[in-house]
Amino acid sequence: MSLDSQANRPNEIWQADHSPLDIYLRNEPGPPARPWLTVIEDDYSRCIAGYFLTFDRPNTLNTALALRQAIGRKADPRWRICGIPEVFYTDHGSDFTSQHMEQVCADLQSQLIFSTAGVPRGRGKIERFFQTVSQLLLQTLSGYAPEGCGPATSPQLTLAAFEALLVEFLLGVYQVRPQRDLPGTPQTRWESAGFLPRMPDSSEQLDLLLLTVAKARRVRRDGIHFQALRYIAPTLAAYVGEAVVIRYDPRDMAEIRVYHRDTFLCRAICPELANETVSLKEIVRARNQRRRDLQQTIKDRNELIQTYLQVHQVTPEPPRQPAAPTTSPLRPARRLRLYENE
């Protein structure tokens, strides 16, 4: 199948692609950096079904997590596109041609097609999306930097703050904005077909798209320990001492999926993060910051102790020489007096 001709219905063909964005964001504690955006677009409607935003270069995990988001139902009611695509069309990069993606598409009964190496046919539509993002969103933000140029203004946005603006742009502008070569808007075109998208048999079927921890974990009496966090679930009480495999989304560490002997067991939550969305990077960053703070505290206290000792130091007296023992002069021994008449 080729993308030279348009799809005839929604979810017939989805395209995936990456691109560095023309903006610099704050990347503490390092210098500002340009983020990478992975998007999955429905070829028929031009709707964006899923995305992944990161400072890291593209890899299979980014694509898998974007596809997982694209297939599942979204929390925001404005973002209605979902379902399993009939064809998942990607470029020929090594990140896409992994056995992981082939296994995922086979399990979901979706045909995986790679573009010919060096001949990326049918990429114009998704490339126009990146141009639209640059022209209508990035140019209005601090840190905007056209390709080959540095930022015109100092970067002020963090990755999380920019992601919130990007989502609002997708749902509030791009999806409801008429396209010049498309009747209606992407949102109305995807909904106009009046079809029921094909969904996975269960939410656990999409867990193959999550990151799998290679080393098995042992269930303890107080739960599963991972990344210095503790995860609990009532089901785990019957598996204390057993080895389990966990899968997780690095963007949200509040919950992990637990598998026992290749069978889904339960979802375990971290009580400390139950009401929050905390990424793995944020946890690692907080842990490193805590370590640096402790090291600085120890250093400051050592300096304070050294200063105190220098200020209050008493000059020690030179050691006294032991006095020579005094000896009294020897008295002559008394001699016995002898008398003549004795």
Rank of each mutant, 00 (worst) to 15 (best):
P120M: 08
L159W: 04
N27T: 05
A161E: 11
P120H: 07
R128S: 08
D95G: 01
W36Q: 03
D95H: 03
T188G: 04
E163Y: 06
C105T: 12
L21G: 00
R57S: 05
T140Q: 15
R320E: 13
E127M: 10
V284T: 12
S202I: 06
R320H: 10
Y144A: 10
K215E: 04
R291P: 10
Q295P: 05
R220L: 09
Q111S: 15
R320K: 15
D56T: 01
Q295D: 10
L138W: 06
A161I: 02
A49F: 08
A145N: 11
Y231R: 06
N288K: 08
Q295F: 02
L25S: 01
P178E: 14
D4R: 07
V219M: 00
Q296I: 03
L304Q: 08
L165Q: 07
G172D: 04
A16M: 10
R123H: 07
Q103L: 07
L236P: 13
I232N: 11
G148R: 09
S115D: 03
V87G: 01
P234A: 10
A238D: 14
I81Q: 08
Q227Y: 04
E317P: 14
L166S: 02
A161M: 12
L67V: 02
T132K: 07
E12N: 11
G83W: 03
S19M: 06
R177W: 07
R287N: 12
T326P: 07
H260Y: 14
E147G: 12
L209T: 03
V87H: 05
D22L: 01
Q109G: 11
L25A: 00
R290Y: 08
P120I: 08
D56S: 02
Q321L: 13
S2A: 12
Q69T: 01
L338K: 15
P322G: 13
A49R: 01
V39G: 02
I13C: 09
G72C: 04
A117Y: 06
I23Y: 00
S2F: 09
E340T: 13
H18W: 15
R26A: 08
E272S: 14
